[in-house]
């Protein structure tokens, strides 16, 4: 059957898509959020619904980008079926004897950016700070959500608990600071130095400015919390070392707007996720995959 354009050839991917989105939505909506800093439950619900919508858009955009890859030669069948097969193949290869090699390639070339380091130390540092900060924040978010809302881990909840001070306060600020430094270098290079190789079009500017606003907004939000001594921000401010500096910019009277600002920051972060597949930031997903596949495939396999 040329092309395999029947529904049965496509349904598998969309069924998987729905299951993943549904599972994500259920988990997100069922978590208790008892320790979240924001008090407005309506605001929290709006944030959660926007997040689900944005994750849906992110998944849809990513899937469609991957479906474009599957229009190329080298695989047979409907693009949806090809994609499922490709994911299966990638998992099999990754979990095969080549696992160690895959991990090594991923860390060396995709995360540590070994090649960029050799060509420009400044750009390597800039990119590493942005990527490292972003990944650290993502991991911390998962860790904190899991330990707070599922494990109810007390040292993560208590204001003077070690996990609260070192992970919720210090590590988050460190991740944010890494991103802030990296983005500042990127912005300075792109908008002030303007080296010849840099080409700035709207998507390039939007990506940097969007991320900068989110990071700065996050620190300002933390500063607002500290300035107003809201729940979770009453003691040990030195651990939130960047947020503490921002607290001097935020008068304590802004306390009443904390929930609204939290919602704006949350929605911007969610929108950023939705924006990824439609922007140059999609390289965050495509580049590690391309590096991984290139590193694993032999010449012969690539030829097939």
């Amino acid at each position: 059957m040329p092309g395999e354009r029947y529904l049965k050839d496509r349904i598998g991917l969309y069924a998987l898509f729905c299951v993943v989105l549904l599972a994500f939505s259920v988990v997100l909506l069922l978590l208790p959020y008892e320790t979240v800093y924001v008090e407005s439950r309506e605001g929290l619900l709006v944030f959660l619904l926007v997040t689900i919508a944005c994750v849906f858009v992110f998944m849809l955009g990513t899937t469609y980008n991957a479906l474009i890859w599957m229009q190329g030669k080298g695989l047979v069948g409907a693009p949806e079926r090809r994609l499922l097969k490709a994911v299966g193949l990638a998992l099999r290869i990754t979990l095969s004897r080549r696992l160690w090699k895959t991990i090594r390639i991923f860390f060396r070339d995709a995360l540590y950016l070994s090649k960029l380091k050799g060509r420009s130390k400044t750009r390597w540092l800039m990119h590493l700070l942005i990527l490292g900060g972003f990944l650290l924040m993502f991991v911390l978010d998962l860790l904190v959500t899991f330990s707070l809302d599922i494990l109810r881990y007390q040292p993560m909840i208590d204001e003077e608990g070690w996990a609260k001070m070192w992970i919720r306060d210090f590590a988050f600020d460190l991740a944010g600071l890494m991103m802030l430094l990296g983005l500042s270098i990127a912005a300075f290079r792109r908008f002030v130095l303007k080296p010849k190789i840099v080409k700035t079009e709207l998507p390039d500017a939007v990506s940097i400015v969007f991320l900068l606003l989110i990071v700065l907004g996050g620190f300002y939000l933390e500063g607002m919390g500290i300035a107003a001594s809201i729940r979770g921000h009453t003691v040990n401010h030195e651990y939130s070392f960047v947020g503490y500096l921002f607290s001097f910019l935020a008068p304590s009277s802004v306390n009443e707007f904390y929930d609204e600002f939290w919602l704006v920051h949350g929605i911007m972060s969610a929108l950023f996720i939705a924006y990824i597949p439609f922007s140059k930031l999609f390289h965050m997903i495509a580049t590690p995959i391309a590096i991984g596949i290139d590193g694993m495939l032999t010449e012969e396999a690539r030829a097939r």
């Binding site: 890859w69 420009s120 080409k199 140059k280 495509a286 391309a290």
Partner: peptide, 24 residues
């Protein structure tokens, strides 16, 4: 018609970071 573009090549088009290292 992109059916003659390699799957890997299409992936690489998305993997380009637009950094411009190649331009100079």
């Amino acid at each position: 018609d992109i059916s003659t573009l390699d799957v890997l090549a299409l992936m690489r088009y998305d993997a380009c970071t637009r950094c411009g290292e190649c331009t100079s």
